[in-house]
């Protein structure tokens, strides 16, 4: 019985707030004072807590999600070698200091004089050669002491260039050091 009345009153209160029927409100006036106190729940502490939680999650959420660079190494045994036409090969050598030596292979097995390029120039050269020769293969040789940052930058430039992304990693050997010396180490 009591619950029923209470429910009625709540409805009335809502209506009243919207400027609705005054009749009901007046009729049950004797209830009014008691119920009104119960009806207005103070939301301030609730909102305070929620705001705190909100702030916490905004602060802790990581906005710059790390990206990943997909690499596919060739499958197969390490010993198995693939013969390629030297005319299609482009050597990219990175020296210890982070200099880039870029040179094109010739069909007779030798290679052209290496040129020292910046990352930006390297991309332009690669784009030029890559569009002229669709079979181009890039061979990347990094000095062991060069920085990983450099490796990512080079791979990034290659990914950015509008060419076929055909490249492989190769070990740096004695002749490569000499080539790099020619462009200033």
């Amino acid at each position: 019985m009591f619950e029923q009345v209470q429910e009625k009153y709540i409805m009335a209160s809502v209506e009243q707030a919207e400027g609705g029927s005054e009749k009901r409100g007046r009729k049950q006036n004797k209830w009014a004072k008691r119920k009104r106190v119960g009806f207005h729940i103070d939301m301030t502490p609730y909102v305070d807590v929620i705001m705190l939680l909100l702030t916490f999650f905004i602060m802790t959420s990581t906005l710059n999600q790390p990206q990943v660079m997909q690499i596919n190494l060739p499958k197969g045994d390490i010993e198995s070698t693939v013969k390629v036409d030297m005319g299609n090969v482009v050597f990219i050598r990175i020296s210890e200091k982070g200099n880039i030596g870029l040179s094109k292979g010739k069909s007779d097995g030798t290679e052209e004089q290496p040129i020292k390029v910046s990352l930006e120039q390297m991309r332009q050269y690669l784009e030029g050669w890559g569009t002229a020769n669709k079979e181009m293969i890039m061979i990347l040789k990094f000095h062991r002491k060069a920085k990983y940052d450099m490796m990512i930058s080079v791979l990034d430039e290659i990914n950015r260039a509008a060419i076929e992304k055909r490249y492989s990693f190769s070990k740096m050997e004695e002749p490569d050091f000499k080539v790099l010396e020619a462009i200033g180490g």
Partner: peptide, 22 residues
């Protein structure tokens, strides 16, 4: 990194990604 790549190649883990910042 090269050593790691060699190890991955030998263990037939040929697909992987480098994590970078934008």
């Amino acid at each position: 990194v090269q050593d790691l790549m060699e190890i991955m190649k030998e263990t037939k883990n040929t697909r992987f990604s480098f994590v970078t910042d934008l």
